[in-house]
Amino acid sequence: MKFMIIVKANAESEAGKMPSEQLLTEMGKFNEDLVKAGVMLAGEGLHPSSRGARVRFSGSKRTVIDGPFAETKELIAGFWLIQVKSKEEAIEWVKRCPNPMESDTEIEIRQVLDDDDFGAEFTPELREQEKRLRAQM
């Protein structure tokens, strides 16, 4: 099972405050533990929303909205993508994580959909296309 571990932004991360050397060291150790355990697929920090944009879809219309975005508790400051056996295992990994913001924050754990979750609508042809695309990545 794949899980996206989402680090929620706070006022400091949205202001562009970079982590301390101590936190970077602790995060490096945590990432090393994830890699050694064979569960880490990806992980990155993100720039503040002031450097980002959103594209709003309304029918065929597309509207670009430049950051920053007002509600920090709904923004993402970083993520990990891990592959583990269960949600419980993902939770245990997150509980071992150093506090990524050095102040109040929240980490969300979301399971990534796999091919079987899409049901019959994900036809054999679409599955084969997806398999080819993943091989190319």
Score class of each variant (00 low, 15 high):
Arg96Gly: 06
Gly16Cys: 00
Val84Ala: 01
Phe30Trp: 14
Met18Gln: 10
Ser60Tyr: 05
Cys97Arg: 05
Ala53Phe: 15
Lys36Asn: 13
Glu125Leu: 13
Thr72Ser: 02
Met101Val: 03
Val94Ser: 02
Ser58Asp: 13
Ile107Tyr: 02
Asn31Ser: 12
Lys17Phe: 00
Phe69Gln: 04
Leu41Gln: 13
Ser60Gln: 15
Pro48Arg: 02
Val112Leu: 10
Ser103Phe: 07
Ser60Phe: 01
Gly16Gln: 00
Ala90Lys: 06
Gly52Arg: 07
Arg56Ala: 15
Trp80Thr: 00
Phe30Tyr: 15
Met40Tyr: 05
Phe118His: 09
Lys29Gln: 12
Arg51Gln: 13
Val39Ser: 06
Thr105Phe: 04
Met101Ala: 15
Arg62Phe: 10
Asp114Arg: 10
Lys29His: 10
Met27Glu: 07
Ile107Cys: 01
Ala77Ile: 03
Asn10Pro: 12
Lys36Leu: 10
Thr25Asp: 13
Phe118Leu: 14
Asn31Tyr: 08
Pro19Leu: 06
Gly78Ala: 05
Ser86Trp: 06
Phe69Cys: 01
Leu81Trp: 04
Asp66Trp: 11
Arg56Met: 14
Ser13His: 00
Thr123Asp: 02
Arg54Tyr: 05
Glu71Thr: 14
Glu108Tyr: 05
Glu32Cys: 09
Leu41Trp: 00
Glu89Gln: 14
Glu89Ile: 09
Gly67Asp: 03
Pro124Tyr: 01
Arg96Val: 08
Met27Pro: 02
Gly28Asp: 06
Val55Trp: 00
Gly59Tyr: 04
Pro68Met: 00
Gly119Asp: 04
Ile109Ser: 02
Pro48Trp: 00
Cys97Thr: 02
Gln111Trp: 07
Met18Phe: 05
Leu41Ser: 04
Glu89Arg: 11
Glu14Ile: 07
Arg54Trp: 07
Ile109Phe: 03
Ala90Phe: 07
Gln83Tyr: 01
Ser60Arg: 13
Lys85Trp: 02
Ser49Ala: 05
Leu23Tyr: 00
Asp66Met: 11
Ala90Thr: 04
Met40Cys: 04
Gly28Cys: 04
Leu46Val: 03
Leu126Glu: 13
Lys73Cys: 05
Glu89Tyr: 09
Ser103Lys: 14
Gly45Glu: 03
Leu41Lys: 14
Ile91Glu: 11
Gly43Leu: 11
Ala53Ile: 09
Met27Asp: 09
Leu46His: 00
Ser58Arg: 12
Ile65Phe: 13
Gly119Pro: 03
Asp115Ala: 09
Gly28Arg: 03
Asp104Glu: 08
Ile109Asn: 07
Val84Ser: 05
Lys17Cys: 01
Val84Arg: 03
Trp93Leu: 06
Asp117Glu: 11
Phe118Pro: 03
Phe118Asn: 10
Glu108Arg: 05
Gly52Cys: 10
Leu34Val: 08
Ser60His: 04
Met18Ser: 11
Asp116Ala: 15
Gly43Tyr: 09
Glu44Leu: 11
Glu14His: 01
Glu92Pro: 01
Ser58His: 10
Phe79Thr: 11
Glu32Met: 09
Pro100Arg: 12
Asp115Lys: 02
Glu74Trp: 01
Phe118Gly: 07
Phe118Glu: 06
Asn31Gln: 06
Asp114Phe: 10
Val35Gly: 06
Glu74Leu: 11
Leu113Arg: 12
Leu75Ser: 08
Glu88Gly: 11
Arg62Val: 01
Pro98Phe: 08
Glu121Cys: 07
Ser50Leu: 05
Gln22Gly: 12
Glu108Pro: 05
Ser58Asn: 12
Pro48Asn: 07
Pro98Thr: 08
Ala42Trp: 12
Glu21Lys: 15
Gly52His: 12
Glu32Gly: 12
Lys73Ser: 10
Ala15Gly: 03
